[in-house]
Computed example of a mutant assay.
Amino acid sequence: MATFATSEQLLVVIDPLARQADGESVRIAKDVLSAGAATKVCLPEGPQEFARALARRGARRPVVVGDDQALVRAVGLLHRQRELAGCALSMVPVGGVLSLAGALGVPTGAVAAARAVLEGAERRLDLLVDDSDGVVLGGLRIPPVGFPEAGASPAGATAVGATAVGATAVGPGGSAGPPGDGDDDTDDSGDLGGVSRPWLRTCRSLVRTLVPGRPARAATAPGPSRLRVEVDGETLVDLDQPLEAVSVTPGGSGLVRVEVQPVSVGAEAVPLLARGHRVTVSGADFRYRADSGVTGPVRRRTWTVRESALGLVLPPTA
């Protein structure tokens, strides 16, 4: 592992979400880094400025202050610029999700992480690169944990037939009106000579909650997937075998570790394991969680291991 001199210049790129989430940790990291090396601090306001700062770093060693998403973004940018091989990346984890940084060996405290930037050593790590030029640092899983299967409504999505709060429903004939069955514009005066009857509107609203109208489309419960998983061109599992999950992680030494969990029928199913350099998953539309984000749906994706592609500065004992 290569070590660094404290006289080296640093480019400290502070992700905007880190500044919002924990400004005190950001300040501490800046103070520690500035005390130990010549630093240039960049405060990008969005992804484009973040990318521009990395592209214009010159001879400075980049230091990302942010969460897991900021780390993956930086690695992806350097990969697409084809500059990962000659770049040692450092990170000070600040923000919400930091599990990936911790798993890679980056200290999760601002002071310890900043000291590792100054005193640590570069360690070369394997990287997964997919056929759309995306990168995976820690691993991926199908289906993604905490995310519904195809057919189920994603978290936060408005169900079919439901109306979002504050939205204007379109009634029969295309006229805009309040959410309901289209009769809210009817005069409530009835036979009382034009006297308003607000209680009638209240009763109608109550009836609507008790009497079913058009049935909403029920969300499909998560079920088994049918996917073809190939490792180095050899089929590990085919479409005729339903699956519970597939996980793909860098296994070291330029190999990827693949684990397929078949659907258990009666007795618990034994996972299928394989190692190789390239993994292809294909079949019906599927989503996958890679590092800190969910991607998809896609019908086919191939991941290839790039051995020692990422240089990450870690504490000497990591």
Results as ranks from 00 to 15, higher is better:
residue 106 V to R: 01
residue 166 G to R: 04
residue 208 R to H: 08
residue 241 Q to C: 15
residue 167 A to K: 10
residue 205 S to K: 11
residue 265 V to N: 06
residue 67 D to C: 10
residue 285 D to M: 12
residue 177 G to C: 06
residue 70 A to H: 00
residue 228 R to I: 09
residue 111 V to H: 15
residue 155 A to V: 14
residue 78 L to G: 01
residue 89 L to C: 02
residue 81 Q to Y: 09
residue 277 H to P: 00
residue 295 T to Y: 14
residue 192 L to I: 09
residue 156 G to K: 05
residue 260 V to S: 02
residue 124 R to E: 13
residue 270 V to F: 04
residue 78 L to Y: 05
residue 10 L to P: 01
residue 272 L to T: 08
residue 146 G to V: 00
residue 126 D to H: 09
residue 219 A to F: 06
residue 219 A to R: 11
residue 115 R to C: 04
residue 187 D to N: 10
residue 139 G to N: 01
residue 42 C to Q: 14
residue 135 V to F: 13
residue 44 P to G: 09
residue 114 A to W: 02
residue 72 V to R: 04
residue 3 T to N: 13
residue 209 T to I: 11
residue 61 R to H: 12
residue 165 V to T: 13
residue 264 S to W: 05
residue 223 G to Y: 05
residue 294 V to T: 08
residue 277 H to N: 05
residue 6 T to V: 04
residue 32 V to C: 06
residue 121 A to D: 07
residue 50 F to Q: 01
residue 192 L to S: 07
residue 2 A to P: 12
residue 262 P to V: 04
residue 261 Q to N: 08
residue 196 S to V: 11
residue 106 V to Y: 04
residue 7 S to G: 06
residue 41 V to A: 05
residue 235 T to G: 07
residue 77 L to S: 09
residue 204 R to A: 10
residue 253 S to P: 03
residue 273 L to T: 00
residue 220 T to H: 13
residue 276 G to R: 00
residue 186 T to D: 10
residue 262 P to M: 03
residue 121 A to C: 13
residue 221 A to E: 15
residue 213 G to S: 11
residue 126 D to L: 07
residue 175 S to L: 15
residue 311 G to Y: 09
residue 232 D to I: 02
residue 276 G to V: 06
residue 238 D to S: 11
residue 31 D to P: 00
residue 123 R to Q: 11
residue 220 T to W: 09
residue 125 L to H: 06
residue 302 T to D: 10
residue 11 L to S: 05
residue 36 G to F: 04
residue 267 A to F: 07
residue 52 R to D: 09
residue 177 G to Y: 02
residue 30 K to C: 14
residue 188 D to N: 15
residue 55 A to N: 08
residue 66 G to M: 05
residue 245 A to G: 13
residue 80 R to M: 05
residue 205 S to P: 04
residue 196 S to Q: 14
residue 273 L to E: 06
residue 161 G to A: 07
residue 187 D to F: 09
residue 228 R to N: 09
residue 191 D to Q: 12
residue 291 D to L: 03
residue 121 A to P: 05
residue 232 D to W: 03
residue 184 D to F: 15
residue 46 G to V: 05
residue 203 C to T: 12
residue 293 G to M: 11
residue 151 G to I: 04
residue 97 V to R: 15
residue 296 G to W: 00
residue 160 V to H: 08
residue 71 L to E: 00
residue 64 V to F: 13
residue 145 V to L: 14
residue 54 L to D: 00
residue 16 P to R: 03
residue 176 A to I: 03
residue 289 R to L: 11
residue 74 A to C: 10
residue 259 E to R: 06
residue 60 R to C: 10
residue 59 A to W: 10
residue 201 R to W: 07
residue 172 P to G: 09
residue 55 A to L: 13
residue 57 R to M: 15
residue 252 G to E: 08
residue 292 S to N: 08
residue 27 R to G: 07
residue 142 I to T: 01
residue 275 R to C: 08
residue 115 R to F: 02
residue 10 L to G: 00
residue 87 C to S: 12
residue 193 G to T: 08
residue 110 A to T: 10
residue 179 P to I: 11
residue 223 G to D: 10
residue 304 T to M: 01
